[in-house]
């Protein structure tokens, strides 16, 4: 794989790797797969009909990792990519996705990643997706769709992070859960300048004793705008909790719309939402410990998004 410095930096930021990782992988750069590897238990195949990959994970696979980073470094590149994961029963895997965009041209660079996860029984899956944009031009656009189907007693943890540089993002995350399945979604978002971010999370608790825990933390600076919609449906005995916590600064705007839909007497659903500026008393405390107001502010924000 031949990567230039910009591409290497993007890769480090979105997938935390320098060079070829352990385990299975697929590297997609400017619309082409530039490196692909399957392992004994994980089969990575390019799709025939459309762009994207199918990843088949053998039942009983333990502690394996799949890296599927996407890099866009040519200005004006637009793509829609379909990635499907078939995760066999009793598997434990970590999937590291992530998209980095460098734009120095006048055109928009757009990556629409559409991911579907078919998670077998008793699986433990961790999915990490980081977004990062850099380069002098605006027009770095990412619109991920993630669909998850959790079979009985499976557990999925999603870590979604977008800390800098993406001008516009519209994220849709949908999950449905069978009996005893559990999902945890942790979303972290920071927008600045004139960025816009939308995130729509819909979880349906179909199976008995299924649980969902969604925590979204965000910071909106400058004149950026964020819009969150979190929706949990409980169809039977189940537990769902969502929390949307935003710090606004400058002239930013945040809208959070939680909704809960209990279709059973035994559905326990809770939503918490809080939007506000940095707590003055937190700033004060850190200043009494010797930090300047700016240092105190960044300490609070870094902690909040940690």
């Amino acid at each position: 794989m031949n990567l230039d410095e910009i591409e290497k930096d993007l890769l480090k930021r979105v997938a935390d790797i320098s060079g070829v990782p352990e385990g299975a992988y697929n590297f997609r750069i400017n619309g082409k797969s530039v490196g692909k590897k399957s392992t004994k238990n994980i089969d990575v195949k390019s799709k025939a009909e459309e762009s994207g990959i199918d990843v088949f994970i053998e039942p009983g696979t333990k502690k394996d990792v799949v890296h599927i980073p996407v890099i866009l470094s040519e200005s004006g590149h637009k793509e829609t990519v379909y990635n499907d994961f078939y995760i066999g029963d009793n598997s434990e895997v970590t999937i590291v996705a992530g998209c980095g965009i460098y734009n120095c041209g006048v055109k928009n660079s757009i990556h629409d990643g559409i991911h579907a996860f078919h998670v077998g029984k008793n699986c433990k899956v961790k999915y990490i997706e980081k977004h990062y944009g850099t380069g002098p031009s605006a027009g770095k656009i990412l619109n991920p769709t993630t669909e998850l189907h959790l079979d009985e007693s499976s557990y999925v943890k999603l870590e979604l992070e977008q800390i800098a540089g993406v001008d516009s993002t519209s994220r849709l995350t949908k999950a449905d859960l069978k009996n005893d399945a559990k999902i945890e979604i942790e979303e972290k978002l920071l927008t600045h300048g004139r960025q816009i971010a939308k995130s729509n999370i819909e979880v349906t608790l179909e199976g008995e004793n299924s649980t969902a825990d969604i925590v979204s933390r965000s910071v909106a600076r400058d004149t950026s705008k964020q819009n969150f919609k979190l929706h949990i449906t409980g169809k039977t005995t189940c537990r769902g909790h969502s929390e949307c916590d935003a710090i606004i600064m400058d002239d930013a705007k945040v809208i959070a719309t939680p909704s809960l839909d209990a279709e059973s007497l035994n559905a326990e659903l809770i939503h918490e939402a809080a939007i506000g500026k940095i707590a003055g008393e937190q700033l004060t405390k850190l200043m009494t410990l010797g930090l300047t107001p700016d240092q105190a502010e960044s300490k609070i924000i870094n902690g909040f998004l940690k």
């Binding site: 707590a279 937190q282 609070i300 998004l305």
Partner: peptide
Amino acid sequence: ICFKGVTVRD
């Protein structure tokens, strides 16, 4: 004062 994400070590 309580924080979010700030540890005792911090």
